[in-house]
Amino acid sequence: MAQWLTPQQTAEALPYPALANAIESLLRDPTVVVPARTVQPLAGGGSLFVMPAADATVAITKLITFIPDNATRGLSAIQGDVVVFDAITGERTAVLDGPTVTARRTAAVSLLAARLLAPRTDGPLLIVGAGVQGRSHLEAFLAGLGVQEVWVASRSAASADALMQHARSLGLRAQHVVDADAALAHCPLVVSCTSAQEIALRARPRADAFVAAVGAFTPRMVEWAPEVCRWLAAEGLLVVDTRDADHEAGDLLQAGIDVHALATLGDLVRHPPAQRPAGPVFFKSCGWGGWDLAAARCARQR
C-alpha cells in the first residue's frame, strides 16, 4: 500500500544535505529521463504543472498548481502532490506533499550549486523575499554550509519578522534590511526568491558573491536588472540549473543573454571545475522534474 506522507513527514524524509547529495547522484545517473513539463494555464490566472520523470527503478509525476495571488485567500501559492511509482511493477509506492518537496528540493539545488561554486560560504546570507523559499533556503544554507548570520529583505515587514524569528530560533543572528541593493555589498551569499513580478535588485553583487536566483521561472518573470545580469556575464560566471532554463530564465533572457551557451549544474557535477571561480557566481534556477525524482529517491532511501 502506498505511503501518504504529510507535509511534516515529507520534510523529515528530505534533510537538506542528504537531498543535495541525492540531486548530485541523479545528475550522474544516465538512466534518468525527464520529459518536458506541461504547463496548463488556469481560468483564474494560475497554472497547472504536470512533471513526469523516471530512472531505472523509480518513476514520479508531480502535479501541482501555482496560483500567484493565493495569499489573498489565505492559501499557499503552490498546492499538489508528487506521486511515486515502482518503475518495474508500476505500483504506486508513495505520495509526497508537493509544496514541501518543491520548497526543499529547490533549496537543496541551490545548496549543491553553492557547495560546488561559492567563492565564500561563511556569509552573511542575504535573503530577498521572505516567503516559503526564503525559509527553505535559510534552513538549507544553515544545514549544508553552516551560515551563522542572515539578512532579510522583504516588501512585507510581517514576513521579514517571521523569517528572522525563525532564524533566531535556529540559533542564527538575523537582521532586517530595508535596502537590498545596499546590503549586497556586505553579503557574499545571496538568495533572491521574490514573486518576480518586477525587478527587485539593481546593484551589483560583490566580487566574491554567490547568488542563487530562484524567483523567476518563466520568460516574463524577473528579479535582477538586465544591466546587472549583463555585467555578471562579462565579469563573473553564469550557471543555469538545466537546459530548460534556455526558454525559462526570465532574468537572463530579458537581459539578452544567450542562455543556451551557459553551463548547467549537471555539466559542473560531471566535470567539476579545477578551482573556485575568481569572480561572482550567478546561479539561475528555474525548476525541473528531475529534482522531484531526486527527492523521491532520497525519501525512499530513508
Rank of each mutant, 00 (worst) to 15 (best):
residue 164 M to Q: 15
residue 164 M to S: 09
residue 180 A to V: 10
residue 186 H to R: 13
residue 160 A to W: 03
residue 184 L to W: 10
residue 137 H to R: 02
residue 98 G to K: 10
residue 187 C to I: 11
residue 168 R to C: 14
residue 117 L to E: 12
residue 192 S to T: 15
residue 206 R to M: 07
residue 93 T to G: 05
residue 108 A to F: 02
residue 202 R to G: 08
residue 188 P to D: 13
residue 173 R to W: 05
residue 113 A to M: 04
residue 107 A to D: 01
residue 204 R to V: 03
residue 154 S to H: 13
residue 194 T to R: 06
residue 106 T to S: 12
residue 153 A to V: 08
residue 163 L to Y: 12
residue 146 G to E: 14
residue 93 T to E: 09
residue 160 A to N: 02
residue 172 L to C: 07
residue 200 A to V: 13
residue 190 V to G: 03
residue 127 I to H: 08
residue 175 Q to Y: 01
residue 192 S to R: 01
residue 130 A to F: 02
residue 185 A to E: 01
residue 171 G to L: 08
residue 122 D to T: 15
residue 178 V to P: 00
residue 110 S to I: 13
residue 164 M to T: 13
residue 130 A to Q: 03
residue 181 D to Y: 07
residue 203 A to Y: 05
residue 102 T to W: 01
residue 201 L to M: 01
residue 205 P to E: 12
residue 148 Q to M: 06
residue 169 S to P: 03
residue 105 R to L: 02
residue 164 M to V: 11
residue 88 I to P: 00
residue 176 H to Q: 09
residue 139 E to P: 00
residue 168 R to D: 00
residue 139 E to Q: 14
residue 156 S to W: 13
residue 121 T to Q: 14
residue 88 I to D: 11
residue 192 S to M: 01
residue 96 L to H: 04
residue 84 V to I: 04
residue 88 I to M: 04
residue 209 A to V: 12
residue 151 W to R: 14
residue 172 L to W: 06
residue 180 A to P: 05
residue 99 P to K: 06
residue 89 T to P: 01
residue 128 V to A: 08
residue 175 Q to I: 02
residue 174 A to E: 07
residue 155 R to W: 06
residue 125 L to E: 07
residue 113 A to D: 05
residue 88 I to W: 10
residue 188 P to E: 15
residue 129 G to H: 10
residue 183 A to S: 03
residue 200 A to W: 05
residue 133 Q to A: 08
residue 158 A to N: 11
residue 109 V to Y: 01
residue 207 A to Q: 13
residue 150 V to R: 02
residue 174 A to P: 00
residue 94 A to R: 14
residue 101 V to G: 07
residue 153 A to E: 09
residue 153 A to W: 13
residue 154 S to Q: 02
residue 211 V to T: 13
residue 148 Q to D: 13
residue 176 H to L: 03
residue 175 Q to D: 01
residue 173 R to C: 06
residue 89 T to H: 14
residue 163 L to K: 11
residue 115 R to Y: 12
residue 104 R to T: 04
residue 207 A to N: 10
residue 191 V to A: 12
residue 199 I to Y: 05
residue 172 L to T: 12
residue 144 G to A: 07
residue 119 P to C: 14
residue 136 S to R: 07
residue 158 A to P: 00
residue 189 L to I: 14
residue 139 E to H: 12
residue 127 I to N: 06
residue 208 D to H: 08
residue 173 R to G: 07
residue 91 E to Q: 03
residue 92 R to W: 00
residue 150 V to M: 06
residue 94 A to I: 08
residue 206 R to S: 10
residue 205 P to A: 10
residue 179 D to L: 08
residue 144 G to S: 01
residue 160 A to G: 13
residue 173 R to M: 12
residue 110 S to T: 14
residue 135 R to I: 09
residue 177 V to H: 05
residue 154 S to K: 04
residue 103 A to I: 01
residue 100 T to P: 00
residue 169 S to G: 15
residue 116 L to M: 15
residue 145 L to I: 10
residue 153 A to Y: 07
residue 84 V to C: 06
residue 210 F to L: 03
residue 180 A to E: 07
residue 149 E to Q: 11
residue 108 A to T: 11
residue 108 A to Q: 05
residue 141 F to S: 00
residue 156 S to V: 14
residue 158 A to L: 14
residue 176 H to M: 06
residue 82 V to G: 04
residue 99 P to T: 15
residue 100 T to E: 12
residue 211 V to Q: 00
residue 208 D to L: 05
residue 159 S to D: 08
residue 135 R to T: 10
residue 208 D to W: 07
residue 131 G to F: 04
residue 155 R to A: 06
residue 99 P to W: 11
residue 110 S to R: 11
residue 197 Q to Y: 10
